[in-house]
Design a protein around this nucleic acid. Structure first.
Lengths: 146, 146
DNA sequence: TATCGCGTTGCATATTTATGCACAAGTTTG
DNA sequence: CAAACTTGTGCATAAATATGCAACGCGATA
């Protein structure tokens, strides 16, 4: 599915430099996503990625075009990936965006969220237990696609 | 001269979106800089510009990205002690050094590390589970000795 | 002056990215 | 149920970008 692939792309980009769409294609293939360069060109457009001296990158927090901070927006723009460790979620964001993202999260009064702590590019979300963490993780993963 | 042209390019980019090198070439020509697309490709490389959904853009806020001190250095200099709490590690550093230490940790892309959050003299490191945390703790303890 | 060295550029072309068109699978509408 | 529409994709190819190579301009040196 397209959304899973988009998530995988974000993940890959956060792990190391990707210089061309063909390189991205090969990396994705190793993860089971077998698509053509044409599709990736479209994905990159969808994800509004930037290409620079060090390859592709996720859009950059501060500047830019359009921002009103709803949770959806903030996530789509600055969220990179969610990972779970028992009752905690670790959310990676573009550098410098962890604080606003955490603020948006707090502001929503999501029941699963006991509290958040934000660094520079990482938000730690504490949940009641593993079960609540899982359900929240799924919701957040969906938001990453939007 | 190349430098004047570089300045003109920055200027143009701050004034409005530039979507292709050929468009840039035409805009520059109107200002008296008559060069080919090939030259602009080199200029863009020199200036480390990024291309994104809205065309070319100057590099992000605070410039340079990858020359952080090595993990070994940072640890030997600023690391004080590591402690483990189930799947988390709490790393004490000299006051004010937590941020750079966390940055160095993130930059290494250590697989056990889901994410880090740094305060002033404390870095919280989140791992997948207790097992990963232990193995990472041992590695970090080694670094503290070095 | 002649020659060298170095930085800059254009030309031709290789490489990379974007896109028109067609089609398949799923959804909605009549 | 069938037709119309939507969405996602590949293929072929257009468009955009990068680069090997040769040449030019200019200052330094013999």
């Amino acid at each position: 599915m397209k959304n899973e692939r988009h998530n995988a792309i974000r993940q890959l980009l956060s792990e190391g430099p990707v210089v061309s769409q063909d390189q991205l294609r090969r990396k994705l293939a190793r993860r089971g996503f077998d698509v053509t360069q044409a599709t990736l060109s479209r994905d990159i457009h969808d994800l509004r990625l930037y290409k620079g001296p060090n390859g592709y990158a996720v859009p950059n927090g501060s500047g830019g075009d359009d921002d009103l901070p709803s949770l959806d927006d903030v996530f789509a723009n600055f969220g990179l990936a969610v990972q779970q460790a028992t009752n905690q979620l670790v959310l990676r964001t573009t550098t410098g965006s962890a604080q606003p993202v955490a603020a948006a999260l707090d502001h929503e009064h999501i029941p699963e969220v006991l509290g958040t702590i934000a660094g520079d590019d990482t938000v730690l979300i504490i949940c009641q237990d593993q079960k609540h963490a899982s359900s929240l993780r799924h919701r957040l993963e969906d938001l990453l696609e939007a």
